[in-house]
């Protein structure tokens, strides 16, 4: 197999196509949800909706996850909280502050930024990969999660896990020739980009919309018709 040609394909036309599907797909989902219809706000709110939104983000994103006893998040399923947190932290640190990823952003946005040293990125990557494995085991082992999980969940996990695993292997030149594992990494990323809009991984966009709307509702002080 001609891996140089595969790499060119993965970095070239396939990536462009995947990016278009990603952007077009997310816009489609967003427009579809936003045009579902809004209830008319018939009663003026005595409270601050914006304050509710701020509180919602502050609590939901910054405070609650780090206070184990609140809402029983920790007691309920510690693995979900800890491994989920480590995974998200590692993922975003790597995507934004890993040198090769910053260069990819730079080529598309036209500007770059400082990156984290490889040893730090490396540990975050290893931790994120281990967290993903823990989350997969947890999902299978926990009877409640097992009931909630279907093939889509397995695919979500797979399409995120493959880029992370191949990315780690690419950095360390493990098992395969560099252009082989690098091609696999880029292919995995391309597939993930295509998959995201049509899966629950799209929560990385929709989470913010839903939390904003919920926050506004929480902040509202009025009789709900």
């Amino acid at each position: 197999m001609d891996w140089n040609a595969t790499l060119e394909f993965a970095r070239g036309p396939f990536f462009t196509a995947a990016l278009f599907v990603f952007v077009g797909g997310l816009t489609y989902r967003l427009v579809r949800v936003l045009t579902l219809g809004w209830s008319r706000d018939r009663v003026p709110s005595a409270g601050s909706k914006a304050g509710g939104v701020a509180k919602s983000y502050g609590k939901g994103l910054i405070i609650w996850p780090f206070v184990p006893w609140v809402k029983q998040t920790f007691a309920g399923n510690a693995v979900t909280l800890i491994a989920g947190g480590i995974f998200h932290l590692g993922l975003f640190a790597i995507i934004i502050f890993g040198a090769p990823h910053m260069l990819a952003w730079k080529s598309m946005l036209g500007f770059g930024w400082p990156t984290l040293p490889l040893p730090i990125i490396d540990w975050l990557a290893a931790a994120a990969i281990a967290a993903m494995v823990a989350l997969a085991i947890n999902r299978v082992a926990n009877p409640l999660l097992r009931k909630l999980s279907g093939p889509a969940e397995a695919l979500n996990w797979l399409f995120v896990f493959l880029p992370m695993l191949t990315g780690y292997m690419t950095t360390h030149h493990l098992l395969f020739r560099y252009e082989v594992i690098y091609s696999l990494h880029v292919l995995a990323v391309d597939v993930m980009l295509i998959w995201i809009p049509f899966s629950r991984i799209s929560h990385f966009v929709f989470y913010f919309f839903s939390r904003t709307i919920h926050g506004a509702q929480f902040g509202k002080r009025a009789v709900t018709p």
Binding site: G12, L19, P100, H101
Partner: peptide, 13 residues
């Protein structure tokens, strides 16, 4: 590009 990071996509969309 010769001076573009190797991890960058081949074509800037």
């Amino acid at each position: 590009g010769f001076y573009q990071g190797q991890s960058a996509p081949l074509n800037r969309p």
